[in-house]
Design a protein around this nucleic acid. Sequence first.
DNA 1: CGCAATTTTGAGCCCTTTCAAGAGGAGTGG
DNA 2: CCACTCCTCTTGAAAGGGCTCAAAATTGCG
Lengths: 211, 211
Amino acid sequence: MLSQVAQDRSPVHFRMHQFLARENEKPEAMLHLQEGWACRYRLLPDGRRQITGLYLPGDYCDPQWALGGLPSQPIVAITNVRALQLPCRASHAGLDGHHGFGQALSDVIERQANWLVTLGRKTAMERVAHLLVELFERMRKAGLAYGQQCAMPLTQIEIADMTGLTPVHVNRTLQSMRAKGLVELQSKWLRIPELQALREVGALTPQEAAA
Amino acid sequence: MLSQVAQDRSPVHFRMHQFLARENEKPEAMLHLQEGWACRYRLLPDGRRQITGLYLPGDYCDPQWALGGLPSQPIVAITNVRALQLPCRASHAGLDGHHGFGQALSDVIERQANWLVTLGRKTAMERVAHLLVELFERMRKAGLAYGQQCAMPLTQIEIADMTGLTPVHVNRTLQSMRAKGLVELQSKWLRIPELQALREVGALTPQEAAA
DNA sequence: CGCAATTTTGAGCCCTTTCAAGAGGAGTGG
DNA sequence: CCACTCCTCTTGAAAGGGCTCAAAATTGCG
């Protein structure tokens, strides 16, 4: 396990909207998120933005730094963030084992592939459903879900940048989902009455969002 | 380098449309493609298909097998394929170095992130331009481009499954690009008169498609 | 309490899809 | 060598899901 390694370092804090990493800048260290959310994204010249990765408590940010190379996309804090630092080098120790960074890398690739399917082929409601299911299941794995609910700090604008939709359409889609009783989402709190039903709405295959 | 490792094994062949790997089946060995193209994809229950990764000559298929776990998506040969086998285990040797599997894993993550941006935020013409630029640059790196041209065995249906469009719209988009003199594409052969122009049409950032 | 950000609502448009059908091309077998 | 078949490519017309533009309502916060 890596928890000992992580605890070698003292915690660092980031404010909402602060950068955890910038494009082409060698990161100080890998971060093990203890609290708060962050995301990786790319901004096109005309202002279009696509979020390409979410970091939740318990996640490493960013596992691929262990492979060398510079970050090609910035990472920014969505909420206030508390994290532990660990040297990128130390990560090599964890690459061999079945747990640790190897697993983290696997998860990143798997999740990205799942999102390629969603962004390439799914409808607005399927996209939003996929996102909410994934968030809930990741929060549950992190021990941060309470029954059918968990924190959900994303704004509708951020949901839009994640799902490849416009904020206006995200709003209408969420209303439609609420009307169908699929989700309850208010004041940064998410409740999913029937997870399986939402999984089906999201056209999620059994292996998806399992990671 | 890994070439010696790869040459430890004798070559294997796959016919067009034959599976290199199936969902949830432990792969025999990692493959180092010598000739031909393959792709990883997911099929939704209603028939929608999204290609999530392309494998060109010189590519490893699949680098993430070195991390353990089972393939979550099938891989199928687009053309006839010739490849060298190497044990998944042997790959660990290459994870540390700046070259080899670590680099291959980095490339996969980087390319997937780029495609998330394209599928989430780009127009039909930008998507197709991205694809053609990436294909050409990867073929060039593999030493398989000749001046401004390279082989391009994908059908318009496969381009559609890669770009998240319908085959009909891919057709119209390609015609529009041909009319603008951006690409020449016929009988499985691609020519790009001005690569930089096509990069701009694809809204590719400097770091994109460089991998 | 007041400002700023987020969420919501309305109306019209457009890019892409859908449906349908025809043309072209390559491989097979007689 | 030709006929046949399957697949891919092409074209047309109409529909639709999501986008754009605009403004109002609500929420959060200092």
